[in-house]
């Protein structure tokens, strides 16, 4: 029963570990270079799953404020409601920090009304957007290297490439 609870309760983490191991296995043992890259993709995707799992909260929704919540928040802020220019806010907050050791005012206005438990954590999602881009570009670079290997060796099987390197010199 304990074991079942551990497996079901952390289902996404188990899947993350299994996917990661599948990816590592493919990267290490597969002979075909494209299969290695598929393994690499699975490996990187498993990490995305891990990070996204961190952000989940029970009963929470997407971190977007409803109109009335947002309105109330801007009301607290005074007439500065119209400027949504982030760099401006950043400067404000920076100067607030310089003046005194106050907490930066970004995202704290009206925090009494907004319950953070009701919203999923957006930060891991943002990080993983970047990580997805990194993963795609890694795959792109690796695929183009594979293509170059294919034009130079005429094969994408690792052992055949190594055989050619052993027999011929360049």
């Amino acid at each position: 029963m304990e074991l079942l609870k551990a497996i079901v309760g952390g289902m996404n983490y188990w899947i993350f570990i299994i996917l990661m191991m599948i990816g590592l296995y493919a990267m290490i043992t597969k002979n075909n270079l494209v299969k290695k890259l598929i393994g690499m993709s699975i490996f990187q995707t498993s990490i995305l799953l891990f990070f996204i799992s961190l952000a989940v909260k029970e009963g929470a929704t997407i971190p977007i404020l409803h109109h009335d919540q947002a309105h109330a928040k801007q009301g607290d802020h005074g007439e500065g409601g119209k400027h949504s220019d982030p760099s401006h806010k950043g400067k404000e907050a920076a100067s607030a920090i310089e003046e005194g050791k106050e907490k930066p005012s970004v995202s704290h206005a009206g925090s009494s009304k907004i319950d953070p438990d009701r919203f999923t954590n957006p930060l891991p999602h943002v990080l993983m957007l970047t990580a997805i881009v990194v993963g795609v570009s890694t795959l792109g670079v690796a695929l183009s290297i594979t293509q170059k290997l294919y034009t130079e060796f005429g094969t994408i099987e690792e052992n055949e490439i190594l055989d050619q390197l052993k027999s011929g010199d360049d």
């Binding site: 590592l24 990267m27 270079l33 290695k36 690499m40 490996f43 990187q44 890694t138 670079v141 690796a142 290297i145 594979t146 170059k148 290997l149 130079e152 490439i161 190594l162 390197l165």
Partner: peptide, 14 residues
């Protein structure tokens, strides 16, 4: 070098 770069890409990504 191309073969080495492929290997580097795999290991570096890990």
């Amino acid at each position: 070098a191309t073969v080495a770069a492929f290997k580097y890409a795999i290991i570096g990504t890990i």
